[in-house]
Computed example of a mutant assay.
Amino acid sequence: MSSELKGKVALVTGASRGLGEGVARALAKAGASVMLVARDGALAGSVACEIVSQGGRAESAACDVADYAAVEALAADTRKRLGGLDILVNNAGVIDPIAEIATSDPAAWAQNISINLIGAYNAVRAVLPGMLSAGGGRIVNVSSGAAYRPLEGWSAYCSGKAGLFMFTRAIALETEGRGIRAFGFSPGTIDTDMQVKIRASGMNVISRIPRGELSPVADAVRGLVYLCTPAGDDLAGQDASMRDDAFRGRVGLGKAA
């Protein structure tokens, strides 16, 4: 265990698998106490137990980030159980519906925005007053290259991530000089369960990337955790991308493939 984040408390959404799980484990190794949040509370709990067995401090909770009342209660519970809340990682997200606009399901389209964009807002709204009262905090919103590039079949996902990009900038603007550091983070095309669903769709160029060419989750974890430390302060209000060779160099990685 390192001590870089000793004394800090982090809340990670979408923490039961993939990038969220990796980030939760890495934050705990860096000394933070971590609340792992996912719709699948049992799976998040299993990861939290493993973190504890390895000497870390972790709790878990089931929560639908699209439900503001539930997220508000979660933030209060995190402070009660772990003694504070210094870092928020908004990682919860879905890719569905993968469909052309003309044939897409309106309810599924709205649900995507409810999770990917409104869910991130809900988490920030729930934690931000406490962070401001405490004199500071860090917020990392997991973005995507899809925020800037439309892709066939991904109209909901691209729209939500584009909104999240502007939301990150709005947080930075409204909290300037008040100790809050807000970041967007684009992990690149990484080898997660979401990519399995994307490949199965065959909908656009991303679906045709062979699994062997996907970036390892560990690289993205490294980049995101970097933003949770003071080393990333000068990037506040921006989107850091794992496709950016300058950023990769800062976190000790080689150039992007």
Rank of each mutant, 00 (worst) to 15 (best):
S3W: 06
S3M: 11
L5Y: 01
K8S: 12
T13H: 02
A15R: 08
L19F: 07
G20Y: 05
E21P: 09
L27I: 01
A30H: 04
V37Q: 06
A38L: 10
D40L: 03
G45V: 06
G45Y: 09
G45A: 10
V47N: 03
I51R: 07
Q54H: 12
R57Y: 07
E59H: 10
A61C: 10
D64A: 12
Y68N: 02
A70N: 00
E72K: 01
A73E: 13
T78D: 01
T78Q: 00
R79H: 03
K80F: 05
R81G: 03
L82M: 08
D86N: 07
L88W: 00
N90T: 01
A92K: 13
V94D: 10
D96R: 14
P106C: 03
A108P: 00
I113S: 13
S114P: 09
I115N: 01
I115C: 01
R125F: 15
L132W: 03
I139H: 10
A146M: 08
S155A: 15
A156W: 00
Y157D: 12
G160C: 07
A162K: 00
G163N: 11
A170F: 09
A170Q: 07
I171N: 11
A172N: 06
L173N: 11
E176V: 11
E176G: 08
R178F: 11
R181I: 01
G184L: 10
G188S: 14
T192V: 11
N204K: 11
P210G: 12
L214G: 09
V225P: 05
L227A: 09
A231H: 00
D234I: 13
A236G: 04
G237A: 10
S241F: 13
S241T: 09
R248G: 08
